[in-house]
Design a binder for these strands. Structure first.
Length: 247
DNA sequence: AAACTATCCAACCGCCTATAA
DNA sequence: CTTATAGGCGGTTGGATAGTT
């Protein structure tokens, strides 16, 4: 009736049928059937595959397999440094819109780009954003402490809402600057492109400085504390991304 | 040599949207 | 107009493999 070894193997891969559909890794035979289906009927109408090709896979699974693996126009092999620079550039502009990014990289899938970005860059950025969050909390704590002291000394009270709003504003500013990046990165030469992007992030650094000035204008005068918090955000680009190319 | 860690990547899931019924 | 379905997308998982201690 059942071969225990097969069952164990299938359970570990989640291959046991779910409402009649097979799951898990595709076999060579399944690939053959799917390719044959596309050859005859073309792409799309994925839910017909089970009926017309005799595959026990649901439409989503078939589409995914075709799009990410079987499509003949797929580019195999490692992501090139050129492709990597495009990924970084477009991710800075669009964020996690992988399918949008993939349209600029012929033969690469959104899944591939997503996987690449996550393994190469996500951790660093997460670490930094964690640090950013911690810095923010630390800032808040110290502000509260400092406020008490100021009140005791009868100084002007600080506008905490304004300070926090300014910190929130940083992200918005970065987003707006991405429009500039789009124009800057249109140059043909690779060197020029890298130079432009590096300049762009230098500009962002200047924006950070103007933000610090604004914060100072609120009457908030603990520079070493501010820099500690704000530098983390900038490090996200400098340390997390390889923005500083060797030109 | 073994244990541990990091990276790679195929495939899944849930959510969303567009379109057909 | 509403509902059902297919397809698309981004996030996540987990096994395989490579690299390090």
């Amino acid at each position: 009736m059942f071969d225990l070894r097969t069952m164990v193997g299938h359970w570990s891969w989640g291959l046991m049928e779910d409402e009649g559909w097979r799951k898990g890794p595709w076999t060579a035979e399944e690939d053959r059937l799917l390719m044959e289906y596309v050859r005859i009927y073309g792409e799309g109408r994925w839910n017909s595959v089970a009926r017309l090709a005799g595959l026990k896979r649901n439409g989503k699974s078939c589409r995914l397999r075709w799009v990410n693996y079987l499509r003949p126009d797929l580019k195999r092999g490692q992501i090139t440094p050129h492709e990597e620079s495009i990924i970084l550039e477009l991710h800075a502009r669009w964020g996690n819109r992988w399918s949008t990014i993939a349209r600029s990289l012929p033969g690469r899938t959104d899944n591939e780009i997503k996987n690449y970005w996550r393994t190469h860059f996500k951790k660093k950025i997460k670490d930094n954003s964690d640090a950013n969050g911690k810095a923010k909390a630390r800032l808040l704590r110290r502000q509260q402490f400092h406020q008490q002291q100021l009140q005791q000394q009868q100084f002007n009270p600080m506008d905490m809402n304004k300070i926090m709003a300014l910190l929130e504003e940083r992200q918005d500013k970065n987003n707006n600057n991405n429009n500039k990046l789009e124009a800057l990165s249109s140059s043909v030469s690779e060197t020029e492109k890298k130079q432009n992007i590096t300049n762009f992030y230098s500009q962002t650094a200047e924006n950070e400085q103007s933000l610090i000035s604004e914060l100072n204008n609120t009457g908030f005068v603990v520079p070493e504390m501010l820099n500690e918090g704000l530098d983390v955000g900038w490090d996200m680009e400098l340390g997390g991304y390889p923005w500083q190319w060797q030109l």
